[in-house]
């Protein structure tokens, strides 16, 4: 009987702890990005005016099929988002799509595709892009653009399964190449 008493006391303590599930300390910390990530996310462009680079950036976001959530002109902030089907992203995988899906599904959890972390048939990915385009501080006629992307894997019950910031330099390289092409298509020399 005393053993049962101890067991139920332990159970009661577990209940207290479970009832107040704590937030990990790391969630409060704000470590800065590394220099290499910052460099990969940033490019400088030489164009005749700020309007040229902003128009090309808006067109780029549309080319990549994002909807705008906020645009703030003097601050040069363009934020957009889109939701995509995880399966179709893998099927139509370009570099961007493949990186986002595969890293979300396997690298974060350290599990190979096909393991328990693999996306289900109905999983979706929310992508949020922030692009900041501003006149360069040190050279006139140059504009710097920095892009950051957050991806969230959502399961079929609409619960957020995984979240991460995209850091793959090849992906940003691909986006900046698209921005150069966008400037060309807009007739900017």
């Amino acid at each position: 009987m005393p053993q049962h008493g101890r067991f139920f006391s332990a159970l009661l303590l577990c209940g207290l702890v479970a009832g107040c599930e704590s937030i990990p300390e790391e969630a409060y910390w704000l470590p800065p990005s590394s220099q290499s990530v910052r460099e990969a996310q940033t490019r400088t462009f030489e164009v005749p005016s700020e309007v040229n680079i902003l128009q090309a950036s808006v067109a780029l976001m549309q080319d990549m099929e994002y909807n705008f959530d906020t645009i703030e002109y003097p601050l040069g902030v363009l934020s957009g988002s889109k939701t995509v089907d995880a399966d179709s992203m893998l099927r139509n995988a370009g570099l961007v799509a493949a990186d986002i899906v595969l890293s979300l599904l396997s690298i974060v959890g350290g599990t190979a595709p096909g393991g328990s972390l693999y996306a289900g048939a109905d999983d979706e990915i929310n992508l949020t892009v922030t692009m900041v385009v501003l006149p360069s501080l040190d050279s006139e006629g140059q504009y710097s653009a920095r892009i950051t992307i957050r991806s969230e894997l959502i399961d079929k019950s609409d619960r957020v399964k995984k979240v991460r910031m995209i850091e793959n330099p090849a992906l940003y390289q691909e986006i900046f190449e698209k921005l150069s092409k966008s400037l060309f298509l807009e007739g900017v020399k």
């Binding site: 470590p31 959530d69 906020t70 003097p74 601050l75 902030v77 900041v132």
Partner: peptide, 19 residues
């Protein structure tokens, strides 16, 4: 401008801004 750069650096996406 510095605040926007800082938030990006710390892994935030920008939801809104009003100069």
């Amino acid at each position: 401008r510095s605040v926007v750069a800082t938030l990006q650096d710390l892994g935030f996406t920008i939801d809104s801004a009003d100069p």
